[in-house]
Nucleic acid binder design. Structure first.
Lengths: 221, 221
DNA sequence: ATGAAGCTGACAAATCGCTGACAGGCGCTG
DNA sequence: CAGCGCCTGTCAGCGATTTGTCAGCTTCAT
């Protein structure tokens, strides 16, 4: 299950992201309205968690634009407590549920589960890229039908690249996704991780475009 | 097995809850319609026991809303004796069974078992996984035909994993089903429980996928 | 040819899960 | 009510796995 988290406060975003990741979701984040709008419009998410107070384009406008463009993924809106006006406006704009801040993480998880279940049910659970099959429900990857044992971090990398197949993903984006904004790590950690993965999945599974990033599937010249 | 008990009279709720807990279920309670609706909408229960006379949102409306949102868990409704009108309305609203008050606790337990068994499918009272046999009616587990003595908590864990065989169950999900939404426990409690179980049932009974969760049955690489 | 970017194998650190021991709580019994 | 036994959570330590770091090597573009 793939989530988009839209939250401008980096610390809060990191916390929420950690909780959701821990619950088994693949989390991507956007910190301003433009980013959020672009990602929600071009990528497929199983759920969007949307904070309303954003720099640039505000959350409500982002939501309206998505719906206007026919994007129907469930959206969970984080509101200030008791802000009725916002809730009413949100309903009109197409929000599916609300969570007043501050909230318990357990409650966030519960609502996220409820929304995902209601909308997708089980959803398309596998992604196929070349010889690879990624089963997002069992969190398992097969090469030519042979299941592989991946570590959690390895799995997250494959999953992310799989969701962004045929696109070159810059290292910074991958680091952000894998490690959040914890910048303590050596840049080489990612390269080492890729090396280990290629050893398990075959060298062709992940491609490199020197100076730009990594990709799975076909990359344009 | 995780149950939601909806009952506004605190004394009655406590009694029923005690009986159900004693029968090996994890019971959570709601004392008004709003609570009940929210919990039933966001959490996964194997059965809901619903009293109709509630303050705030009444039981029948709660049930209708759940069904309207696509929530299909079995619901056992507690009605006043001989209230035919209620029964008919309840059937339309999506209730699965009725129990006229006052009732014997044994009857409540019998109906609860029946509903849960029916919903799990197969109607089978026993689950077989590898060398294990789980008799859900007697709440007993056998290894190669040899009955084992399990504590209530141990049984619930085996039972849950058995119902979800061949699937990796994340620790968070297990905690939720074993302990309800009581989040106070140390993460290690679950590990300790698994260790005790493996000692009784054999090390192979429960598998671990490091970083992902536990499973019973086939999920090996 | 040369420097930067990326790869790799070895090692070290951090993390995760397992286990045995212990203790508090609860119910049962005398 | 005290004493006992069982169930279960907590703690601390261990061992295995996972992940980060480092140093040296290869590859690629200019």
């Amino acid at each position: 299950m793939r989530l988009l988290l839209v939250e401008d406060d980096a610390r809060i975003a990191a916390d929420i992201s950690a909780v959701l990741t821990g619950a088994g979701y693949t989390v991507e984040t956007a910190s301003d309205g433009e980013d959020a709008w672009f990602l929600g419009d071009t990528e497929d998410y199983d759920l969007v968690v949307l904070d309303l107070g954003l720099p640039g384009l505000d959350g409500m406008s982002v939501l309206k634009r998505w719906r206007g463009n026919g994007r129907h993924m469930p959206v969970l809106v984080l509101t200030a407590r008791g802000s009725w006006a916002e809730r009413v406006e949100g309903i009109d704009a197409g929000a599916d549920d609300y969570l007043p801040k501050p909230f318990q993480f357990e409650e966030l998880l519960a609502r996220a589960r409820a929304l995902i279940r209601r909308s997708v049910g089980l959803g398309a659970a596998t992604i196929a890229v070349g010889p690879l099959t990624i089963d997002t429900r069992a969190m398992r990857v097969s090469v030519n039908g042979v299941p592989q044992t991946l570590t959690p971090l390895e799995y997250r990398l494959v999953s992310y690249l799989g969701h962004h197949r045929d696109r070159i993903v810059p290292p910074t984006e991958l680091q952000e996704h894998l490690y959040g904004d914890d910048f303590s790590r050596d840049a080489n950690a990612l390269e080492a991780l890729v090396a280990r993965l290629r050893k398990k999945l075959g060298a062709v599974a992940i491609g490199t475009r020197r100076g730009f990033g990594y990709y799975m599937g076909e990359s344009a010249p």
